[in-house]
């Protein structure tokens, strides 16, 4: 490796006193300019991980590097992390520009210079002309931009965002998502964003890290994560799923509750218990009544969303979920062989 990653977390652990909660043995590298999104159910340790990087919590084991420097025992202020807090944590008694200039002020940058740099950064986040306002006079999205400008203005080694979009309404959230991505790429800074929203994770990230019970389950680019989830937890956390348990009956077939499913060739022993994953959007309504992986189905529940439908079907002895744009009645479904994949059983 020629270049040290901007952020390197190696085997980091921390447990809260008295509980099982915490994070355990987490290793993540974030390259300059890369945006890693950390996702997981609440209480999985996402924010703890972020606090370990910032130094707001001490590692009980493992190390943290920022820009090639070991900062495991360094103080919060010397680590130079730009943080955007969930609540933004803007200083309510300072104007917008004073908020942004605060990190420069504590670094003894002189007034005209810090004003210039703050204004430039406000320009970058699209807040030209708001300098003199107080935070309370801004909308949620604007406060978010101020927080972002403040976190970036002092050229931090990394940008850390703790659920930055969760306090915004749906429309603002989507536009801010694009803004964060644009600014992060423009600043070319190694960034970690925490969220529990899978759309946010998939659409924003260069790579997504999935956490569960304080452990890193999988870290991969969004597409890979979606198409090749490490296990059933990742598969269902990151998207809608059909998880079908069955038993191997042939080198390319599995018997399940919905019937015999033909799969891509595999090397499982005969009789092995397996779990299959089929994404609902990969299953097609079928116009023919017979064929490979074509099953008779009865509609149990039909939700219409305009562009698409989410349908639950009773198939054989089991159930299937499908997402489709097809209108009309559905009596048969087709599972393309390539849409079927094996998940490890635990």
């Amino acid at each position: 490796m020629t270049e040290m990653p901007s952020v390197r977390v190696e085997g980091a652990s921390f447990s809260y006193p008295g509980g099982k909660a915490g994070v355990f043995d987490i290793t993540i590298d974030i390259a300059p300019g890369e945006l890693v999104v950390c996702i997981g159910p609440s209480g999985c340790g996402k924010t703890t991980l972020l606090k370990l990087i910032t130094g707001l919590l001490p590692c009980s084991a493992g190390r943290v590097w920022l820009g090639g420097e070991d900062v495991t025992t360094a103080s919060v202020r010397s680590r130079q992390c730009g943080i955007v807090f969930q609540s933004y944590a803007l200083f309510p008694h300072m104007s917008v520009w004073e908020n942004v200039a605060y990190p420069l002020r504590v670094r003894a940058v002189d007034r005209t210079e810090r004003r210039r740099q703050a204004e430039a950064m406000l320009d970058t986040v699209g807040l030209r002309g708001y300098s003199e306002r107080l935070p309370a006079a801004l909308s949620g999205g604007q406060q978010q931009r101020v927080a972002l400008a403040r976190a970036l203005v002092f050229k931090p080694r990394t940008l850390l965002l703790d659920e930055p979009l969760s306090a915004l309404d749906a429309a603002t959230r989507i536009s801010m998502r694009d803004e964060i991505r644009r600014i992060q790429k423009q600043q070319n800074i190694a960034s970690l964003l925490i969220t529990h929203d899978r759309d946010e994770a998939l659409s924003l990230a260069d790579r997504v890290a999935v956490l569960r019970d304080g452990r890193l389950v999988q870290i991969a680019p969004p597409q890979e994560l979606y198409d090749r989830p490490a296990d059933a937890f990742v598969a269902s956390f990151i998207g809608r799923t059909n998880l079908i348990d069955g038993r191997v009956v042939a080198p390319d077939a599995v018997d399940t509750a919905i019937g015999r499913i033909v799969t891509p060739a595999h090397a499982m022993p005969m009789g092995a218990a397996v779990r299959l994953l089929v994404r609902p959007e990969r299953i097609e309504p079928s116009s023919t009544e017979t064929g490979e992986n074509v099953f008779a189905a009865t509609v149990v529940h039909d939700r219409f969303f305009g562009a698409s439908r989410e349908i639950e079907l009773s198939v054989g002895q089991g159930m299937l979920k499908i997402d489709t744009t097809v209108r009309g009645t559905i009596a048969h479904v087709h599972l393309p062989r390539q849409a079927v994949q094996f998940l490890p059983t635990h």
Binding site: T54, L56, F85, S87, P92, Y102, P103, V106, F154
Partner: peptide
């Protein structure tokens, strides 16, 4: 009424 993270914000931005 003041968010706890306001102090954390100040420290992380480099203030003692």
């Amino acid at each position: 009424q003041i968010d706890r993270s306001i102090e954390e914000a100040s420290t992380s931005l480099g203030a003692g």
